[in-house]
């Protein structure tokens, strides 16, 4: 079932991109709602900063809107979008005086965010505290429905087998952490 749904989603993303290329902000909004957590998560996993991740997430959609007409990579809309995110993150990281790890920011969010006061952010914390940079990005990308390991390994410029073994190691850490919490 999951694979069938994924396939449909990917197809739908391509249709949205077509509409966006023709200037449709409605299509952009639908795509945004369906994929923002992926885009945000990936930016967060690279930048380790909630504010910068939010900024990059927004800019990703600005660029998608701008460049949708150039999208041609058949059947890989997510990889295309995530590559834009990655590039924006790399640009951000070139800037000086960045603040990286912001566990404090997350703590602040947990205590101030009334909407989700029961949410303890076990995974967001663990991602920052216990995983290496690569593990964190792999976990985030592998949690994106419809993104293949092959596309993950291309995005991260790692061998497929490396991605898979790191993925299993990191998943183990996450499970262990979840049991503690």
């Amino acid at each position: 079932m999951r694979h069938e749904l994924q396939y449909n989603d990917i197809e739908m993303f391509e249709i949205y991109l077509l509409d966006i290329a023709n200037g449709s902000q409605e299509a952009l909004e639908i795509l945004y709602n369906k994929t923002k957590s992926y885009i945000y998560g990936y930016a967060f996993s690279i930048l380790k900063n909630v504010h910068e991740a939010e900024d990059v997430m927004q800019d990703t959609y600005v660029n998608i809107y701008r460049y949708a007409k150039n999208y041609t990579s058949k059947k890989k809309p997510l990889a295309w979008m995530l590559t834009i995110t990655k590039n924006l993150c790399l640009n951000k990281m070139k800037k000086k005086s960045r603040k990286e790890t912001d566990i404090a920011d997350i703590e602040h969010m947990i205590t101030s965010n009334k909407k989700n006061e029961h949410h303890d952010y076990v995974f967001a914390r663990t991602l920052l505290e216990d995983l290496t940079d690569e593990e964190r990005q792999i976990i985030i990308l592998s949690s994106i429905e419809g993104l293949k390991y092959r596309e993950i390994s291309a995005l991260l410029d790692l061998n497929l087998s490396t991605v898979l073994s790191k993925y299993h190691r990191a998943m183990k850490k996450l499970r262990a952490k979840y049991k503690e919490a």
């Binding site: 923002k36 957590s37 992926y38 998560g41 991740a53 939010e54 949410h119 952010y121 976990i139 949690s143």
Partner: peptide
């Protein structure tokens, strides 16, 4: 994980 990212 996706939910948490959404919340953030």
């Amino acid at each position: 994980i996706n939910n948490e990212m959404n919340y953030l």
